[in-house]
Each structure stands twice: as C-alpha cells, then as structure tokens.
C-alpha cells in the first residue's frame, strides 16, 4: 500500500488522530518500563511513599552498582549468555542439517522420522520435564550451563522451520553443484545454507528469545543462585531481598536490557523473523 492511495486531506486527519491514539497506547505499553527505570534510580523510601515519587530528584546510580556487589549478577549473566550461545549454535547446526535432509534427501523412514520429531510440538513440556530432569541429574549436569542448555539444542520447531525454508528453494542450484562433483555436505554447506539466511535469522531470534527468557526449566535444574541464569535468579530473588525494591528493579533492568536493546536495534529483522515463523 502506498501514500498515493489516500488523498492528502484524508492523510492529514488520519495522521493527527492516529498519532494521538498511537501515542496514548504506546505510552500505556511502555509505562511499566519507564516506571521500572524510575524506581531503579530512586531510594527505597521514595518507592514506598504515597503519593508516588514520580521523579527521584537525585538519581541513585548506586542501585546499579549494588546489583553487582549484592547479587551474583555477573555469574547469572554469564550463565544466561552461555546457555543462549550453546542453544543458538546447536540449533542452527542441527536443525538446518536435519531440516535440509527432510526437505531434500531420500532415505528410508523419512516421513515417519519427521512425524516423530514434529509430534513433540503437540506436547506440553510438562509431559517430558520430569524425565529430562532425571537424565540431566544422572549425567551429573545439574547446576551446569551445559545441563540447562542441553535439551534445548534439539528443536522440533527449528527442524520444521528449516525444512520449510529448504522446500522453498529452487532445485537447479543443487543439481548444478552435483554435476560439478560436490558432495551432499558441500552442496548443503556452500550453496543451500547461505540461501536459507532468512530462516536461520528467524531461528536465531526465536531461540535467543526463548533461552534468555525461559524460567521453568532453569529453575528445575539449578539450586545455587550463582549457577542460575538471570530469569531464575530474579524470580528467586523475590523471596530474599524483597524489601530493597530499587536494587531489585535495577537488576531487572539489567537482566532484560541486552536482548531488548539488541532486538530494538534489529527491529525490522525481528518483526520479520517472528512473522515469518508464524506464517509457516
């Protein structure tokens, strides 16, 4: 759709009304984030005052320092980064290979194996969580980054997404490469994978989001605060230093900031990736 389809007058009225409306809704949507920032820069007394303190006056940057000195924030940040990196790399490798094979290769039992993998999409995590915990426990991986990340490097969703991508790519390039004597792995790695970039970036975005934000599984396989990722660390924090509200808010700001800022910078790509995965 283009601007030309509306007359200038229509556009004018639309704009003013629309911007007021969008501005109000936008403000409501981001108000909690603004409030979070304000509290994170206030004193505890200001937070507990009625009526609320809308501007703390002197900004309490010390709250952010406290996050690092009073909480195991560095450790938890490291765990969050670790599990996210492992899951993203694992899924991109495994899902693109499996997705490619299911889309383009012939082998006995292809349909059945695809069906088996996709069947777990229809099952809520509670149906496999307990035995998964026991496996991680038996492997001696409780309270480790690998233990939190391991089940999540396999993804039925990722296989499905990548399969759909490869199904949509033209056959001709592969055939030409094959005639040039390339083996299937070379064809996959050098020719098809670069063409699958939109799917891979969608997969990276979604996996990053899920593993950075996930709470239930990390909560299950970690018991020590310094071994938890940020999500679980924040959730358990609620029980311990609940009374130091500004530090809690500062911690929550810092916990969500990396992914939030990254995704805002890559806004277009993220929206496309999420929309893309939804349309398949």
């Amino acid at each position: 759709m283009s601007k030309e389809s509306l007359s200038p007058a229509q556009q004018g009225t639309n704009s003013v009304r629309a911007h007021v409306l969008l501005g109000v809704i936008g403000f409501i949507m981001v108000f909690p984030f603004i409030w979070q920032l304000i509290i994170s820069l206030s004193t505890n007394d200001q937070v507990m005052s009625v009526p609320p303190t809308f501007w703390p006056g002197e900004l309490q940057w010390g709250n952010f320092v406290d996050v690092f000195t009073k909480l195991p924030f560095f450790d938890q940040f490291g765990v969050s980064v670790g599990i996210t990196v492992i899951r993203v790399i694992g899924q991109v490798m495994l899902c693109s290979m499996a997705g490619y094979a299911f889309a383009r290769m012939r082998f006995r039992g292809r349909g059945i194996f695809l069906g088996v993998i996709l069947s777990i999409l229809m099952v809520p995590p509670q149906v496999y969580l307990i035995p998964q915990f026991q496996i991680i426990q038996n492997l001696g991986l409780l309270n480790t980054i690998l233990g939190i990340a391991l089940p999540g490097i396999f993804s039925a969703f990722g296989v499905f997404l990548m399969r759909q991508i490869f199904l949509g790519l033209p056959l001709e390039l592969e055939e030409a490469a094959r005639l040039d004597g390339a083996n299937p792995f070379q064809i996959f790695y050098k020719i098809m994978l670069p063409l699958a970039t939109p799917g891979i970036s969608a997969l990276i975005i979604i996996t990053t989001l899920w593993s950075w934000n996930d709470l239930l599984w990390p909560l299950v396989v970690t018991t020590y605060a310094e071994k938890m990722p940020l999500s679980a660390g924040l959730a358990t924090l609620v029980g311990s230093i609940t009374t130091d509200y500004p530090v809690m808010m500062a911690a929550s700001v810092l916990a969500m900031a990396p992914v939030l800022i990254l995704f805002i910078m890559l806004q277009r790509r993220v929206v496309e990736g999420l929309a893309f995965s939804g349309s398949k």
């Binding site: 290979m97 499996a98 082998f107 777990i120 496996i135």
Partner: peptide, 24 residues
C-alpha cells in the same frame, strides 16, 4: 549422507523428548 544430517537431531529428540514422554 541423510543419516549424517538427521541422526544427531533424531537421537537427541528420541533421548530427550520421546523417551521422556513414554516415561512420564
């Protein structure tokens, strides 16, 4: 070749998802 591509995912899914579903 296809097995090289599929087997890691297949084993992971069977071990970490399908078998746990049966166990649950």
């Amino acid at each position: 070749w296809p097995w090289l591509f599929v087997l890691p995912t297949l084993l992971g899914v069977l071990g970490f998802y399908i078998w746990p579903i049966v166990q649950t």
